[in-house]
Design a protein around this nucleic acid. Structure first.
Length: 470
RNA sequence: GGUCCCAUCGUCUAGCGGUCCAGGACGCCGGCCUCUCACGCCGGUAACACGGGUUCGAGUCCCGUUGGGACUACCA
């Protein structure tokens, strides 16, 4: 009975797409809810009519789905919940916890500037606080917050935080145009939806006391708070657009596996001893707010890359082939035979950090090749011509084309010419792929198949001959 | 300016007074493996911001300094 159900929430604002900071906040809320068999609610904070877009909302939802962070309720839209806000404003007004203020923005701005000039805190002077003013055009509703005392709360990651109430001013709850401010809407929504754990970014710590005051005025239970440290860019500045691709969808497009991103996000700020790799279930079981660090961190791209490579290596070929197809298609290879893609994947999974990289490396299997200039100059030389010609004969005569048989063909060829594999491996590699780097030559020949190998080898031979010139 | 928060290798971090001349991971540098590149394996590089306390003993507790960040809006 004492175990109240845990209810968390993720409230993105559709003024932009979901970036990794938001994604981590969502992840921690999701983990916490899942671990406690509670509820995770999605709420879209679209009260900023000017900057919010439908596209962003859709993109955020798509990102969350891609990451596999499913929600139990919502998405709720703040823009559709105004009725509740009106009711709560009424409640505060009638109980004397809030009041109308007739001060004009201009008047306030003037006072602000004067206060700053005098070195004072630029807060509202409480002019209309006890005037008992009524509703009027241009009036706003302010919270009548306590002038003395302290507001204290126990943050689950930062510890006890306290602030003198005199530092806080009578903040506006409802604007003169009738719309509601962020701090008010959040409290009303969280309270209304039964949110009892608020896990959010560090940038909200200073808002928390203000929000607690609203809860108190509303006479509603105050949730538990956990403030996560910020994620910084390379330059140690808070993450923003100028740090390049930070949106979750950009990571998808770069060829990252959702779980790799999730794992890497989880380890930014949270830790479980020395463990680096976690399955989703482990994350759910082991996550703990107590082990969330207090200091901001820089997102480590190299580490993500490494994790992604690890997960690619461990993923099965068939799944990878499905994931790879769209990337290949993007690069101009459409309608490929899935089986062949799967074989290609097998040769490339240990050497690709992202799906995009894998697709690029796989291109020679599916597209006409060009010789890289340096590779051509260094390896496609007349002195290996006779070996390649001899090899071509063997290849043409091969009755089966699996790796085992290819290796046999080669060992007799090497024997016959008294050479080592090393002498023809690179020329052959360039002949077949156009590059000096590729999976093992027996692997790629098997995947390419006899016909393609014959063709590329013949082309290379002609190419070398043409070089000898007249 | 005021208020609040933060501070261990380049980066992410372990560390909840002695087991730490500080451990793991990524990166980087060597080596092994080897048909190239990877993978894998082995080894190396590198940090408790500074100054005072408290204590028999401090990376770990307290205070200060310095340096970061957040908030201070009729933005969210």
């Amino acid at each position: 009975m004492d175990t109240e159900q845990v209810i968390t929430r993720f409230p993105p604002s559709p003024t932009g797409t979901l970036h990794i900071g938001g994604a981590r906040t969502a992840l921690f809320n999701w983990l916490f809810a899942r671990q406690h068999h509670g509820k995770f609610i999605l709420r879209i904070e679209d009260t900023d009519k000017v900057r919010s877009t439908k596209e962003n909302t859709e993109s955020i939802i798509e990102s969350l789905k891609w990451l596999g962070l499913d929600w139990d309720e919502g998405p709720y839209f703040q823009s559709q919940r105004t009725k509740i806000y009106y009711e709560m404003i009424e409640k505060l007004l009638s109980s004397g916890k809030a009041y109308y203020c007739h001060c004009s923005p201009e008047e306030l701005e003037k006072k602000r500037i004067e206060a700053i000039k005098k070195g004072l805190k630029p807060k509202y002077d409480g002019k209309c606080r006890d005037l008992g003013l009524g509703k009027a055009p241009g009036a706003v509703v302010r919270l009548k917050s306590p002038l003395t005392g302290k507001t204290i709360f126990k943050d689950l990651v930062k510890g006890t935080i306290s602030i003198e109430n005199e530092q806080l001013d009578d903040l506006i709850l409802q604007r003169s145009d009738g719309s509601f401010t962020y701090n008010f809407a959040v409290v009303v929504d969280d309270s209304n939806l039964g949110i009892n754990y608020v896990i959010r970014g560090d940038d909200h710590v200073n808002n928390t006391p203000r929000q607690i005051l609203i809860y108190k005025a509303l006479d509603e239970p105050i949730p538990q708070y956990a403030h996560l440290p910020m994620i910084l860019g390379r330059d140690k500045a808070p993450l923003s657009k100028r740090h390049g691709a930070t949106s979750v969808m950009a990571f998808k497009d770069m060829g990252f596996l959702p779980h790799a991103l999730l794992n890497s996000l989880a380890r930014l700020g949270w830790s479980h001893g020395d463990q680096e790799i976690f399955t989703k279930q482990e994350l759910i079981d082991l996550f703990s707010l107590e082990h969330v660090g207090k200091s901001a961190g820089i997102f480590n791209m190299e580490k993500l890359l490494d994790l992604n490579a690890k997960y690619i290596r461990e993923e099965n070929d068939s799944t990878l082939a499905d994931l790879l197809l769209p990337f290949l298609s993007q690069l101009g290879c459409k309608d490929l035979p899935r089986e062949k893609v799967k074989c290609a994947v097998k040769t490339l999974k240990a050497r690709s950090k992202t799906l995009l990289e894998m697709a690029q490396r796989a291109l020679f299997y599916f597209q006409e090749i060009d010789y890289e200039q340096q590779a051509d100059e260094k390896f496609l030389l007349p002195d290996v011509l006779y070996i390649l010609e001899d090899l071509l004969l063997d290849i043409k005569g091969a009755t089966s084309f699996d790796q085992k048989n290819l290796e046999n063909i080669f060992s007799t060829l090497l024997e016959r010419h008294q050479i080592k594999l090393g002498t023809i491996a690179q020329p052959l590699r360039v002949a077949l792929t156009g590059k000096t780097v590729s999976p093992g030559i027996f692997e790629i020949m098997e995947v390419m198949g006899q016909e393609m190998v014959v063709k590329r080898l013949s082309n290379a031979i002609l190419h070398i001959k043409s070089k000898k010139g007249p």
